[in-house]
């Protein structure tokens, strides 16, 4: 006990493959905990197990002290869930959706009105309460879902890709609401994302790839672990440059797209020397601080973004309409 979410050795096997091959983690109360990884890494499967939607094949987990297999209903009452896909009843009004949720979760009759008002204020939808959800924009629906997820005062709020398919402005707004929530309700937030900038907001980030956790720390610490500065260079002959770089500076070079990427300790000083003495003509050169994408790149040798614009993702963008 002590941790609001406690997971040990959690696995999920399907007939042909293992979607989650063993996850261990603890989440502190009041924390924003991020799950970062490409599509198909097992993030949603893990969240689905924690939220009692699917049964784990192996391992144990508890939320708010309740076992996710043995005490399903108590777990369900302790969590709020916001899925990737909308789960609103679009034929009903915002208020009706919220009222039904109160009834599903046994919120006392005399508290319902007050609670609905409260959560609608958090997401700025008070004036839209009597409108049919069908008429809402994608961002408004998302906000309404977040509001609904809060109605029964969950201890942990699970958000599975909360901003996927939304335009940047709406994404920022959603984040404002999430942060406001953390401040106001002291609620623990457990979210998955494949957007790097979103992961930066989290208190701690677990990086997931191919069903496993490959790192778990604060975003700052994860970046520090990558070490030094990142140099990205494009040359006229990347292949030759790669070999030469490794020979001259004994650095580990990763080719990502057009650019070669490697790390050095003191970026600015290195750059001056490098431009002067490097034989192969340089097209562009760029120095920056490491990002979480570099963390992922270092840990797996792949870029997270390469896999994010998959067919499924594009479909989602189409389904949610134009931005």
């Amino acid at each position: 006990m002590g941790h609001i979410v406690e997971v040990s050795g959690l696995k999920k096997r399907y007939k042909k493959f293992e979607a989650v091959t063993g996850v261990d983690l603890q989440v502190e109360e009041g924390e924003i905990f991020g799950f970062l990884g490409p599509n198909g890494a097992g993030k949603s499967t893990t969240i689905n197990m924690l939220s009692t939607i699917i049964k784990p094949s192996e391992g144990k987990a508890s939320i708010n002290g309740y076992d996710i297999v043995e005490e399903k209903n108590k777990v369900r009452a302790s969590i709020g869930l916001i899925f990737q896909e909308s789960t609103l009843d679009e034929k009903l009004t915002a208020n009706e959706n919220l009222l039904l949720h109160c009834k599903f979760y046994g919120v006392a009759k005399d508290k319902r009105k007050e609670r609905i008002q409260e959560v609608l204020e958090i997401v700025d939808l008070t004036d839209k309460r009597a409108n049919i959800v069908e008429t809402f924009s994608g961002g408004m629906k998302r906000r309404l879902e977040i509001a609904r997820g809060l109605l029964h005062y969950p201890r942990v709020l699970f958000l599975d890709e909360p901003t996927v398919g939304l335009d940047p402005q709406t994404r920022n707004h959603i984040w404002e609401y999430i942060l406001r929530l953390k401040k106001k309700a002291g609620i623990t937030i457990f979210l998955t994302t494949h957007y790097m900038d979103e992961a930066e907001i989290c208190d701690r980030v677990a990086v997931m790839d191919q069903g496993k956790l490959i790192a778990l720390d604060t975003p700052d610490q994860l970046k520090t672990n990558v070490g030094g500065d990142i140099i990205e260079v494009e040359t006229e002959n990347n292949q030759a440059a790669e070999a030469l770089l490794e020979e001259m500076y004994s650095v580990e070079v990763t080719a990502a797209g057009q650019a070669l990427t490697f790390q050095v300790d003191k970026g600015s000083e290195f750059l001056v020397k490098f431009v002067k003495e490097f034989d192969i003509p340089i097209c562009t050169v760029n120095l920056r601080r490491p990002t979480l994408n570099d963390v992922f790149l270092t840990l797996t040798g792949r870029e997270i973004r390469e896999e994010t614009v998959s067919g499924k993702d594009k479909m989602k963008h189409l389904k949610r309409g134009p931005h």
Binding site: N73, R76, L81, F83, L88, D89, F104, G106
Partner: peptide
Amino acid sequence: EFGYLREILVSPMS
């Protein structure tokens, strides 16, 4: 199909 069943099934209702 529209996802609402999940809202129902993940609630603590029996």
